[in-house]
Structures are given as C-alpha cells and as structure tokens.
C-alpha cells in the first residue's frame, strides 16, 4: 500500500522514490523546486510527462487524472504542507487539524485525540486550540498547517519548506514528525532550506537545475 513516486516533469526531470525515503529537492532559487512539488500534488498540471503515484493498489498519473481522482489521492494517499495556511475564517485550530481525518472517515473522538497529540507535539498551547489561527503568529500558523498535513498519516507527503518560520525547538519537533513518518513507511519529498533540518531528515538529495541547463 505504501507509495512510490515515478515522475518526469519540468525539463524532463525523472525521479523515482519509494516508501521509507525522504528525498530533499535541492537547487538554487528559481530552479523549480516548488513547481516540482506542485506538479506532484497536481496543483500545477505537468505539461509533459507523468507523475505516477501508488493509490488504492494501482497507479494514478496525477498529471492526467480526473479532478475527483486527484481529490481522492489527496484525501487518502498524498499530503502537502504548503508555505501558508489557507483556511475558512473563524474555524478553530483544533477543527482545522481534525478536518482531513474526518474527511478520510476517522471517527470523531479518535480524530480529536490525534489532532490534540499533534498540536501538543508542535508546542501549540491548548488555550489556542479553540481559536481560529487568523491571529496566530506566522510560526504558530505554520505549525497548525503541519499538524493538519501530518494528522491523517498519508503514505506520501510533500513538504514545501515546512520549517521556514520556526525556531530551533519547533524545528526539531518537525524533524521528529518527519522521522516518525518515515519510520512507519511513508515517502517524503521536500524542500528544506535549513541545512541542519535537511541533514537530519533526508535520506538522499535530488538536485534540480534551472530549466534550460542540461540535466
């Protein structure tokens, strides 16, 4: 059931990765690191090539799949930590973290417990749980974002600079989450600018050159 990704995007980029790996996409600014992640998540549609992910026992090509197939992959197989938290206003932080669990059919009390555990691990004080994150600091919002993505424990996780807005303590909390995910067999593909984080989590580097340079 665990994922492996096989893709050929941007300028004929090819990457194959399997369960239990943490691939760090490396490259200078503008090399297309975020674009690559967005193509894997089908936020952007790859114009050539394919992005194949293991889903429900078969392969889904995210670049060609029907919208509802993409949504199904996102619900059950692939999580994404964006750089910014985008949520419906007035929804409490705890409910935001619970939402993907409920969407995947987790029973509400279990979803709540799991969400609480994650918020605790990411050092979000419990007095903030019933509040909507609009007034939280950038780092707190980012940690809610991370908690939400890790909550359903998807087999494939995409991380776009998950620790950019975080201090030392919280960076290491995220590093622990990533390691745990890998240990349970998830595949992680991420962009980690922070050197110490990258060294701590990555099992290999995937260098990306700006489009036009030969690969």
């Amino acid at each position: 059931m665990q994922g492996g990704v096989n893709l050929s995007v941007l300028d004929a980029v090819t990457l194959a990765a399997s369960a239990g790996e943490c691939v760090a996409i490396a490259g200078s600014s503008g090399a297309g690191k975020s674009t690559l992640l967005k193509c894997i998540y089908a936020n952007y549609r790859a114009q050539a090539g394919s992005v194949c992910v293991r889903h429900r026992g078969g392969w889904v090509d995210m670049a060609r799949a029907q919208p509802r197939e993409v949504l199904d992959v996102r619900r059950y197989t692939m999580g994404y930590v964006s750089q910014f938290l985008r949520v419906i206003p007035r929804v409490p932080a705890l409910n935001i973290v619970m939402a993907p669990l409920l969407a995947a059919g987790t029973e509400p009390t279990m979803a709540r417990a799991r969400a609480q555990t994650l918020l605790e691990r990411l050092n979000i004080p419990s007095r903030l749980w019933p509040l909507p994150p609009a007034t939280f600091s950038g780092g707190e919002q980012q940690r809610v974002n991370i908690a939400r993505a890790f909550a359903p424990q998807p087999p494939v996780m995409l991380l776009d600079e998950p620790t950019a807005a975080l201090d030392e303590v919280n960076r290491s909390a995220v590093v622990d989450l990533i390691r745990d995910a890998r240990r349970r067999g998830a595949l992680l593909v991420g962009i980690f600018h922070d050197h110490s984080v990258r060294t701590a989590v990555a099992t290999r580097l995937f260098p990306l050159r700006p489009s036009g340079a030969s690969a």
Binding site: Y44, R45, R86
Partner: peptide, 28 residues
C-alpha cells in the same frame, strides 16, 4: 470558490473557458 469548491468552472461571454480543480484553476 477557493475555500468551498472542489472544482471551478470559469465562464466568459456565455462560454466555459476553463474548468478543473479549484486550486489548479486559481494557482495555474
């Protein structure tokens, strides 16, 4: 559209000019 809709359909002058996943349509 972004917060509520799974899919978005864009209309111009009575025609459907683009349709797809909401985040695809709005971000790309």
């Amino acid at each position: 559209a972004r917060l509520l809709a799974h899919r978005t359909l864009v209309m111009q002058a009575g025609r459907m000019v683009e349709a797809g996943l909401t985040d695809q349509v709005l971000d790309d």
